[in-house]
Simulated assay, not measured.
Amino acid sequence: MENYTYNSIMLQLEGLQTSEESVYPVFLLLLFSYIFIMVANAGIIVLIFIDKNLHQPMYLLFCNLPFNDILGNSIMVPRLLVDILQPPSERLISYYECVVQAFTTHMFGTTSHTVLMIMAFDRYVAICNPLRYGAIMTNKMVMKLTVSAWGVALILVGILLGLTIRLNRCRTLITNPYCDNASLFKLSCESVVINNIYGLTFTVVLFSGSIGTIVITYTKITVVCLTSKSKSLNSKALKTCSTHLVLYLIMIFSGMSLIALHRFPQYSDYRKYCTILFHIVPCSLNPIIYGVQSKEIRKYLSKFSVSKTISP
């Protein structure tokens, strides 16, 4: 008969299954990735706030993305780095810390979608209604869009975790490198039908709204560009929209890969690495892609590097 531990405060993380030879290479790779994510995303935020030329709706809305990347990785990666260096039996985490980690992880994924949705709306207004852009995208509208992006994510994730923490627990093993909602409700011996139904609804609504917003806005943008004879408008649309679209495709591909691997239990080790890459890869590429594509950011960085060269 299987032994059960009911509502234990301490849980055990399964973590990554790495060989002794690969422990330190994986640790160093994650460490350098984490440092780069923190420095690059924080640098983009600071740059946007100190340069008045970047105080535009497009960049202010984009600030939500690096802030979300910093928040999502600050909770997950440091704990993962500690666990990699420990034997599996010592990878312990308190239930409350696990809930906070799960909440932050799902907020990260959900907010990535909602932020890119409001950025798509900004690009739609800028290209399809350029004469009314200043009147529509006011500071008040930017604030409303930002609050909406975070508020919707907070409500959806709050209900998701609320349905999970109501359950009694009879197991203690988290079969994942870090805590998430699915790992938490799998600890329960009670019925999780409601959790599965809401989780599926949550995913369908989020992805449908996200993909639908991108398809609708970019279809209208494409129609405007094809019917317009303005080369400057088409050039502006290509530069700004390609950046946003690349960021979105990277995120959606990472998310879809993760969902697909959940359907194949035999690839559980690959799924674990994919969950980590879902945090690492988009967060590393976001500041690079936006920094390279943005004329204003490139101009500021070139001006800064020139002044550094001249000052000695």
Rank of each mutant, 00 (worst) to 15 (best):
N3G: 05
L11H: 12
L11T: 12
Q12N: 01
Q12P: 00
G15L: 03
Q17V: 06
E20W: 11
S22L: 03
S22E: 15
V26Q: 14
F32N: 09
L47F: 00
I50P: 01
I50D: 13
N53M: 07
F62M: 07
D69Q: 05
L71K: 12
V77Q: 02
P78C: 06
P78G: 00
L85M: 15
L85F: 04
E90F: 03
V100M: 12
A102L: 01
S112G: 10
M117T: 14
M119A: 02
Y124K: 10
P130V: 04
L131N: 13
R132Y: 10
Y133F: 13
W150V: 10
L154C: 14
L156T: 10
V157G: 12
R166Q: 15
C170A: 09
T172Y: 11
S183H: 09
S188R: 14
I194K: 11
N196C: 12
I197T: 01
G199V: 04
L206E: 12
F207R: 04
G209E: 11
I211Y: 14
Y218H: 12
V223S: 01
C225V: 15
S235P: 03
L238K: 15
K239H: 10
C241S: 13
I250E: 13
I252Y: 09
S254R: 14
G255R: 14
I276E: 08
I280K: 02
V281D: 04
V281E: 00
S284L: 00
L285S: 01
N286A: 04
N286C: 00
P287H: 03
I289K: 05
Y290G: 02
K295C: 05
R298V: 02
F304R: 08
S307A: 00
